[in-house]
């Protein structure tokens, strides 16, 4: 999704009003309970929270010029990989095998066999349509953020086709956009 993302695609960014800020903060806190304690550090109440609107109904939550979260339409907020690397425990994790890394880093969606093979790890509790962190066999850090198309049980049972949509991966446009001015 962010394969060719540049700052030119930001069609407008504005500081949102307090009530919207509260709503964003609330939904992020609901989505990622693990972030509760650092919430004040991440999204300080005092500093302005900016929402950058981009093409394809994409919103970026930007604090101090650093993109922290993104969402599509009214979908769930997802952290950027740089943020996830700092707080790796906040998301549910799926692991792909080593052979898949290359393709995922090129922006491919995650196919079921890559998750069910010996190198992959499936968290049984993951339902359909939830944001997940994509880890890789033998690696410490996440390499992508995905949005599951089917539940973990289905992935195991069907074992064919796209299991997780690749939203954001290492070295894509959003990854390279460390600061948004």
């Amino acid at each position: 999704m962010f394969k060719k993302f540049t700052s030119e695609e930001v069609s407008g960014q504005n500081q949102v009003k307090a009530s919207v800020q509260r709503r964003i903060r609330q939904s992020i806190a609901d989505e990622y309970p693990g972030l509760e304690l650092v919430m004040d550090d991440l999204l300080p109440k005092k500093s302005p929270l900016i929402v950058a609107k981009c093409q394809n109904h994409l919103n970026l939550v930007v604090v101090n010029n650093v993109p922290l979260f993104f969402n599509i339409r009214d979908g769930p907020y997802m952290p950027t990989l740089r943020l996830l690397h700092q707080y790796p425990t906040i998301m549910k994790k799926l692991q792909v095998d080593r052979g898949a890394i290359k393709y995922v880093l090129a922006g491919a969606n995650i196919m079921c066999p890559g998750l069910t093979s010996p190198g992959g790890i499936l968290d049984e509790e993951v339902g359909a349509e939830t944001p997940v962190a994509i880890m890789a066999e033998g690696k410490e850090h996440a390499l992508a953020i995905g949005f599951t198309k089917m539940s973990a049980k289905d992935i195991k049972a069907i074992n064919k086709g796209i299991g997780v949509d690749n939203m954001h991966y290492l070295n894509d446009g959003l990854w390279k956009m460390q600061r948004l001015d």
Partner: peptide, 25 residues
């Protein structure tokens, strides 16, 4: 409870990826 400390990830100085992913960079 104590605040979870942010993990410091080692990013490659050349390509910007976490160092362990350089081989796929």
């Amino acid at each position: 409870a104590e605040k979870p400390q942010p993990v410091r990830v080692l990013y490659c100085g050349v390509c910007g990826l976490p160092a362990e992913y350089c081989e796929f960079g």
